[in-house]
Design a protein around this nucleic acid. Structure first.
Lengths: 103, 103
DNA sequence: TCGTTAGTTCGACGGTTATCGTACTACGAA
DNA sequence: TTCGTAGTACGATAACCGTCGAACTAACGA
């Protein structure tokens, strides 16, 4: 069995501009909202998104490299998680505020 | 004397994607941070920003039209204010979280 | 009225980014 | 080992965005 965590920034490396920019894109915000409802993470391939698989991979990379999500492998699949604690510690209230927006 | 409020979205018209996108740009975040320290608003022409006046006007327009700031005239000057209450009501914690980021 | 000051608007330019299709890699199952 | 599935990487394209200078507007003061 091989489960690897894909490269992601340490909390100290996370920049608020990058987080806001990552969250400010509609497709990515949709992904984040879905992850917020999945405490154990989800396989993002299962999400229904109005884009192709390659575009979805692109958005997931942006989210991961900005520090918003964490992704680890599970066989051929990738499980993604919201980095709630890290973000809450860095920017208390930010994520809650974003998620409280009526869609 | 003529003091007009420049056109801005009603609270119900504010979209969280637009707010996040507005906040995710370094120059605009600098402006927002400055406004956060000025409860009575400031004349943004006085801010030291690494851009020309026309670019500054562009960023202020983005911030205003996304619902982040409110601007009213005062003679030839424009006074801008953070829309703290509106944003706090719509997205509780968001602004606080953003502003708590160490620069 | 004339100039000065604060700010906006417009058009252009260049860099960034969202999107796609295709090719590729990695893992698991038959 | 071979095939199918999940996902990534790459290159191209089109749209978007930040930036600037120049021209314009509006208000105040001399």
């Amino acid at each position: 069995m091989s489960s690897k965590v894909l490269p992601q920034p340490e909390p100290g490396e996370i920049r608020v501009e990058a987080v806001l920019q990552a969250l400010g894109e509609p497709v990515r915000l949709t992904i984040v909202r879905a992850l917020a409802d999945a405490p154990d993470g989800i396989c993002c391939g299962e999400l229904e998104l109005p884009v192709t698989a390659s575009t979805r991979a692109h958005h997931l990379k942006i989210l991961r490299e900005s520090g918003v999500i964490s992704t680890h492998t599970d066989g051929t699949r990738r499980i993604s998680l919201l980095r709630r604690e890290d973000l809450e510690k860095l920017y208390p209230g930010l994520l809650t505020g974003v998620l409280s927006a009526k869609q």
